[in-house]
Structure formats: C-alpha cells, structure tokens
C-alpha cells in the first residue's frame, strides 16, 4: 500500500473507533487545510456522511474569506455545524488586537476559553440551520465529551507526544507524563465519567502528506493558501493580527508540494508565521496544557 493509502486507512479506523465508542462526539473544524482533510476523511469513514457535528471557534479576527468558505462547505456537504465564541471578551475588547492582552493571553481567551465553554455547552452557540442555510442560536447546547482534532505530530514538539486517543481531565488538562499505552490498533476508549477525550486521527500525517492528499483527492481548499499575484501566501491559517503570510509564488497545490519537497520551506517550521508560539520558551506547550488544540 502507498503511504497515503496507509495514512487514510488508519485515520478512517480511528474515526470509526471514536464513533463506535463515544456518544457525544464533535469534530473541531478550524477551516484550515488539516481539519478540512480531517473532514474529508470523516466522509471517507462514513461513506459520504458526517454523522457528528463540527465545531468552529470564531475569534472574530479570522480572515473574512475563511467564514465565507466555511459556510459554503457546510451547506454543500450538509454539515451539522456549530459555531462558538467568547462573545464577552470580544464585546469588551479584551483582546490582543485591542491592546489589552498579550498574544498568548488572547489565544487563551478567544480560543481555549471559548472552546472549553462551547464544548461544555456553558456559553451560547450557533448551529447551521439547513432549512434557511444560516446560523441560528442553539436552543439547548449539549455538552460534548469526545472531541476529534486535526493536530499533527510534525507541527511542534509537544504535539509529537500526543496519543491518538488522549484523555483530558475535567479541567481539560493534559498529563503528558502519564499517558495510556496504545498498541495493535487498540486505544484508550474507556473513560471515567467527567473526563473528556481528544481524538487525533491525523497524528502521523506530515504537512507534505496533507498537501499530497489534497491533490490526490481534489479536496476544495481555501484560496488563502495560494499566492494570488502578490508573491505571498498563508502557510498556516490563524487570526490575521498574529499570522503573517510567507513569501511564495505557489498558486496551486502541485506548486505547494514542489515547494515543500525541494524548495525553500523544506527547513522552515510550518508555524513560523504564528507569533504566539514565540512568546515564551514553550508558548504552545503552555497553551496546550491549558486546553489549546
């Protein structure tokens, strides 16, 4: 079997395993290439269906194109999409772009906190109403205990230590030193009441694998990843105040693949454009222990 076929089959196996084992399951969708590949893999696993909701955490600092693309795909693929946010912080302008918080603090408020409270159903959420094709406030936000996330091991040090099935306690904290064993396609699928699980079907994929798969499957991907005549493109998508485009003239997927294989990005970290990673010694690790994806 080819590498991509192996990766696909393994991810599909993990998705089916989580669907079998967890009752209240949700998949996070950041609109980026990784979680969109994950969404595609869910359609592979469930033969064209996505039998659980998707959740997007909207920081209100996303590039507007991302929201347009998100809503279109949700309508086209009949996705049960939920949108959560930290409306209090956004309304009070308690953010980094408003000058009130550091980048890491802002990530914590607009992403980690928003995610935690959207997953638990504590904060109001919106859900795509397919009868009208628009987001509507959710009447009764239910808590989710199984969360499928598109992190990859090659992104960053702390992510390389993740399990496919990873337990978080009630406070969403991660005990890196005491993780369950995983062997022979057997994962930790039993959890004490009150804990929640993160499932990582993309753990073994590399950035290059992701692009090769997008090319092979012709997955519709947001155009921010391509140079549109300015000699710049996004390599990793985040909030616009903290994510800068890289210099590149790649205008399509094959050109991105070539760039990654041989070109100038071969030795530059993918998240190098993400400023919050650089704020202290272990910016992302500090965030992840506190529940960041």
């Amino acid at each position: 079997m080819q590498t991509l076929d192996r990766l696909e089959a393994h991810s599909v196996h993990i998705l089916r395993e989580s669907y079998r084992e967890f009752k209240s399951l949700v998949m996070l969708w950041s609109i980026g290439k990784d979680s969109t590949v994950l969404l595609w893999l869910a359609r592979k696993a469930f033969f064209g269906h996505v039998p659980f909701p998707l959740m997007h955490v909207d920081t209100h600092f996303k590039v507007p194109e991302m929201i347009t693309y998100r809503d279109k795909l949700a309508r086209d693929w009949h996705l049960d999409m939920i949108v959560g946010e930290n409306s209090a912080a956004i309304a009070a302008k308690q953010t980094f772009p408003d000058g009130k918080l550091t980048r890491v603090e802002c990530c914590k408020a607009l992403k980690s906190e928003a995610l935690k409270n959207s997953l638990s159903g504590a904060w109001p959420r919106k859900r795509m109403d397919h009868t009208v094709g628009e987001l509507r406030p959710e009447a009764k936000p239910e808590p989710f205990t199984g969360v499928i996330v598109g992190v990859r091991a090659d992104e960053e040090g702390s992510r390389s230590k993740e399990r496919y099935f990873s337990a978080r306690d009630r406070q969403h904290e991660w005990d890196v030193g005491d993780q369950p064993p995983e062997l022979w396609k057997q994962y930790k699928t039993d959890f004490a009441p009150g804990t929640h699980v993160r499932v990582h079907p993309l753990l073994d994929w590399t950035e290059l694998n992701i692009w090769e798969y997008i090319e092979r499957e012709q997955i519709p991907i947001i155009s921010l990843y391509f140079d549109r005549g300015e000699g710049r493109r996004y390599r990793s998508l985040g909030c616009y105040p903290c994510t800068s485009p890289v210099n590149s003239t790649a205008t399509n997927v094959p050109e991105i693949i070539r760039e990654l294989q041989s070109g100038r990005f071969a030795n530059i970290a993918e998240r190098s454009g993400r400023e919050q990673d650089k704020e202290d010694g272990g910016g992302l690790e500090t965030l992840r222990r506190g529940g960041y994806m």
């Binding site: 091991a153 090659d154 960053e156 040090g157 702390s158 390389s160 230590k161 890196v176 030193g177 993780q179 073994d204 590399t206 010694g281 272990g282 690790e285």
Partner: peptide
C-alpha cells in the same frame, strides 16, 4: 526532549516522533 518536563528530568518520558 522538547518538553519542559523532560528537560528537567533528563529522560524521555514519552514516545516522541520526528521526521
């Protein structure tokens, strides 16, 4: 040993992957 825990203990506590 990219994680803080590990550097302080000087041992690998988990299976880390690199490419």
């Amino acid at each position: 040993d990219a994680l803080k825990d590990e550097q302080s203990q000087g041992i690998t506590i988990d299976a880390a992957r690199c490419f």
